[in-house]
Simulated assay, not measured.
Amino acid sequence: MSTKLLTVLLVGVVAVSLVGAVSFVGGVVRFLVLLMGLGAFVLAARGARGDEEGGLVFGTGEDESAAT
């Protein structure tokens, strides 16, 4: 990893930690960060790819049991 990426990561972690210390707003911010992290993990794990319209495709959308 480059030094610039590590610096940006450190600044982000510190910023989220500081905002997370605020009572109500901090909880909401931490929850949103959690959702973004989980979404990024799912996209990376599933190997998200773009379709022709530019949307994300996670499957064919067809019921495989109907094909038999």
Rank of each mutant, 00 (worst) to 15 (best):
M1K: 05
M1V: 09
S2D: 04
S2I: 00
L5S: 10
L6E: 12
L6S: 09
L6I: 08
L6W: 10
T7W: 05
T7H: 05
V8R: 12
L9T: 15
L10P: 00
G12Y: 09
G12L: 07
G12K: 05
G12I: 06
V13S: 03
V14F: 02
A15Y: 03
A15K: 00
V16D: 03
V16Y: 01
S17R: 05
S17I: 04
L18R: 02
L18Y: 01
V19Y: 00
A21W: 05
A21I: 04
A21L: 04
A21S: 05
V22F: 12
F24W: 12
V25T: 11
G26A: 03
G26D: 00
G26R: 01
G27C: 05
V29G: 03
R30G: 01
F31A: 07
F31W: 11
F31V: 04
F31Y: 10
L32V: 00
L34N: 04
L34Q: 04
L35T: 02
G37W: 08
L38Y: 05
L38S: 06
A40V: 14
A40N: 07
F41H: 10
F41Q: 15
V42Y: 11
V42C: 15
V42E: 15
A44N: 07
A44L: 11
A44S: 08
A48G: 07
R49Q: 09
R49K: 12
G50D: 15
G50H: 15
D51T: 05
E53C: 15
G54Q: 01
G54A: 03
G55W: 13
G55N: 14
G55C: 13
L56V: 13
V57Y: 07
F58I: 13
G59I: 07
G59R: 08
T60R: 13
T60F: 14
G61F: 13
E62S: 13
E62L: 13
E62M: 14
D63E: 15
D63V: 12
E64C: 11
S65L: 13
A67W: 11
T68D: 14
T68C: 12
